[in-house]
Design a protein around this nucleic acid. Structure first.
Lengths: 127, 127
DNA sequence: TTAATTATACGAATTTTTTCGTTGACTATA
DNA sequence: TATAGTCAACGAAAAAATTCGTATAATTAA
């Protein structure tokens, strides 16, 4: 017995989606190499993962050619929003402020980026 | 065969840690009830989860009384930073700006909170 | 004190996630 | 065309995450 239903992509699946969003449509090999930069993974492992993601409808596959090409089937925006939303409720008791604080402390952010964020805040308050 | 090593708390574990950070030291029942607000879970399931977390050192248990009381053994700050850091790299290709954007769009944020965030930005920029 | 209630301990079953080996098809090239 | 290299399909499995049933101990109520 285990989980019952919902919940989005798994950890690895999210990693793969991230790569596809970033690099555009890719073959298994390309994705596998990108993954390898963090933590080596066998080719067939990545392949299987992507086949399962296809079944789940997380990605779509163009198999008209010898080398199948995969691309995301879920939007970057919605998926990210969903993942962040979950984290927000689960770990930050709904406080976006706290989450933002951690995000900014988890990584050095350039002044340019800070400026963009500030502009975003302005727009939000812009009513 | 499966995962090889690292990675922090699992999803459910994170949920439990979140509850403990928020509500302070709690019994299994208290945690279980809190969890139930989202998705019903059997008492023994929650118990088992917390026992495992004790083994992993994620929480510590005071079993001097009949009702064992659990409290977090990992800091809220470090854990949150780690989780957010992971997400940042994996899903947002390291862009804190993007993550912040999603966080703000995932949830309505009060003007007061926005102000706090802005203040935080000011401090980050130094001066 | 006995019965009912509440808790924890254990063990095990289930699901899900992750990981690969093997096989056979396809491709480019010597 | 023979050969080596690349790739996807499959099936199996190990590992990890979840979920509970059952047994037993402690506590409380009658």
């Amino acid at each position: 017995m285990a989980r019952q239903k919902v919940s989005g992509p798994t950890d690895k699946e999210l990693t793969i989606l991230g790569i596809l969003w970033n690099n555009g449509p890719s073959t298994v090999r390309q994705v596998n190499e990108e993954m390898g930069k963090q933590e080596r993974t066998g080719y067939t492992t990545t392949l299987k993962l992507m086949q399962i993601m296809t079944e789940k409808g997380l990605v779509v596959r163009d198999d008209s050619k010898f080398q199948h090409v995969y691309k995301p089937a879920v939007s970057e925006e919605n998926t990210q929003k969903q993942v962040v939303g979950n984290l927000l409720e689960k770990v930050f008791s709904g406080s976006a402020e706290k989450l933002v604080m951690r995000a900014l402390s988890a990584k050095k952010v350039s002044a340019k980026e800070l400026a963009k964020i500030r502009k975003m805040l302005d727009e939000m308050e812009g009513k």
